[in-house]
């Protein structure tokens, strides 16, 4: 019997990544990623609005309303287009990670390892909205590109064009890389549109806004 011949495993790449490559790719990649995210969020919000009546029939809501990759979400599964965007974004994130040093974390780092590799790509943005309310409400967060990576706070939500106590039980946090928006609406909160700024914790600059519409 012939002894099988061993062959080398083809390497992932055969040349160094010159920094210029990473910078250029990074710039282009980030631009593409934000375009994808923006479009995905726009379509996701549209889908959420379209299906609002189907999930908003219960007396209270305290659900994880992640719009990302949760087909069992009571908000309903993503529309087909949303899933396509999601898949595209994940494919982009995976592919792009391969171009970054440390993109594929290794199971074994030899003791000789010198410069630690930069952190691997964080993957696609995950945004979840948690609402506690006895009234039907719509929550619309808007986040500027890049702001999902930094610490954020949100101002109390003020009634838009009418006098009402602000909704101040509003938080925005990062949990395990996900942006989590949490809103608690008092039972006697007047109906209407409330809005507050999302700010960068570090300098207070506006990073987006959060709109809650009650009673529609």
């Amino acid at each position: 019997m012939t002894t099988p011949r061993r062959k080398r495993v083809p390497p992932a790449r055969t040349a160094p990544l010159r920094a210029g490559t990473v910078c250029e790719a990074l710039e282009q990649g980030v631009r593409t990623a934000y375009a994808v995210i923006d479009e995905y969020m726009r379509r996701g919000y549209q889908a959420a609005r379209d299906t609002q009546n189907t999930f908003n029939t219960r007396g209270y809501m305290n659900d994880n309303r992640s719009n990302f990759d949760n087909r069992f979400n009571p908000w309903g599964s993503m529309p087909p287009m949303g899933e396509q965007w999601m898949a595209a974004m994940r494919a982009w994130a995976d592919a792009f990670a391969a171009f970054l040093p440390g993109g594929f974390p290794q199971p074994w780092a030899p003791p000789s390892a010198g410069y630690c590799a930069p952190q691997a790509s964080q993957g696609p943005l995950a945004l979840s909205v948690h609402v506690s309310s006895t009234q039907p409400i719509e929550v619309s967060p808007t986040l500027n590109p890049g702001c999902e990576l930094i610490a954020l706070s949100v101002d109390p939500l003020q009634g838009q064009g009418f006098a009402a106590p602000p909704i101040d039980k509003v938080t925005i946090t990062k949990v395990a890389g996900n942006v989590r928006v949490s809103v608690t609406v008092p039972a006697d909160q007047p109906a209407g549109c409330y809005r507050g700024a999302i700010r960068k914790t570090v300098d207070g600059c506006i990073a987006g806004d959060l709109t809650v519409t009650i009673g529609k």
């Binding site: 160094p16 990473v22 290794q106 590799a117």
Partner: peptide
């Protein structure tokens, strides 16, 4: 497949 390429210091250099 070891060491990882990113652990070879300066291999990925401008």
């Amino acid at each position: 497949q070891r060491p990882a390429l990113q652990d070879i210091v300066g291999y990925d250099h401008p």
